[in-house]
Design a protein around this nucleic acid. Sequence first.
DNA 1: TATAAAAATAGACGACGTACAATTGGCTCA
DNA 2: TGAGCCAATTGTACGTCGTCTATTTTTATA
Lengths: 201, 201
Amino acid sequence: MPPEPVPPTRRLRKRQRTADHVVNVAYALFEELGYEAVTMEQIASAADVAKGTLYNHFPVKEALIAYRMQTDLATRLPTLLAGLSALPTCQQRLRTFLYATGDYALEMRNYLPHYIRHRLSLPVGSTPPEGGSGLDRIYAEMLAEGQRGGEITTRHTAQQLAAALHFLHLSTLLRWLATPGLELQDALDDMLDLFFNGCAL
Amino acid sequence: MPPEPVPPTRRLRKRQRTADHVVNVAYALFEELGYEAVTMEQIASAADVAKGTLYNHFPVKEALIAYRMQTDLATRLPTLLAGLSALPTCQQRLRTFLYATGDYALEMRNYLPHYIRHRLSLPVGSTPPEGGSGLDRIYAEMLAEGQRGGEITTRHTAQQLAAALHFLHLSTLLRWLATPGLELQDALDDMLDLFFNGCAL
DNA sequence: TATAAAAATAGACGACGTACAATTGGCTCA
DNA sequence: TGAGCCAATTGTACGTCGTCTATTTTTATA
């Protein structure tokens, strides 16, 4: 995979520049006024862009947050994955990875509900390009590695397991958001225990 | 629990009558024109009710479907649960229960995406009354029974396990909806295998 | 019967997202 | 370099969801 996927043609570069510009303006407004209080027309006018352009890049409001989180994730991924390869077992790698994304979730706590709603409502239509949030592919890759190492069952495909893990992760985040005193790492530990060992005795 | 929870006071009876009336009118329109094509004002005028009244009973459009499915489920539950008690293990009870709801899901396939979206977006705010769709409580009860029988782990509470199962169930339904050739029972079997046995070897 | 509480009404309103026709700017190929 | 094609952008009107409020009707209670 290329380290810097810069679009080849100028059109696409310009397209991405305006997308970045819009999302930065939007995020600043969100931080200042709160996500719900900021309107799409407000974002458009603050970014000096027509409403149609805004919707051309971000078909729904939550996509602005999704874009932000995707890019944040993309920048943090390399160092994160590098540290992961030192761990011996798939379980440990997954746990520390989820812990790390949990730290980020802590930062983005205010935006998390809208993001999760967005991610959960996507699968209705069709398979989105790039396989969802990108997390799916990472999970699938880590689980496939575990399968090759004989640590993970091969009765299900890695994609299937990754999808289940993704949903369990989101449900854990929801539970954490709704439960004031709950520590996210504890909730993640519970979730991973269920995912790896099941609930049968 | 009372077999027929008829509201005691006349006000509540009348309230429920109008709710039933509205939801019947709405469902007929959905069947005739399709869910998305029917507008809330259309429902209100067809039911001869003010828009405010409609929203008083059903704060969002999907709630009309949820109400319908809740009542359908409530009518089918007794016979369903009766048949279940003959099965020896918790796993078998859960599987046949999910199969049965799967048959109903087959009937309601057109409405399922909207219903799932609705159910998944609820937990963001706070815990809804009656503990979600009612399914949560049923799952929790069945799992608690399994815990008492020594079949299910007690490392997690029954409520926690029920929540995870609920999410896995919804994700399975989504996968089934998005995958044309997939048999729902096969998808449910996969899900239950993961839920009970986990993915570690 | 008088009064308080709950529900229904009508309609205005703000916001999300869509549609469309017209314009601008970048790309391709001779 | 210039003609022409295609994608992005613009402006604006529109439909729909869901909220809000002031007013009226219905039900419960003293």
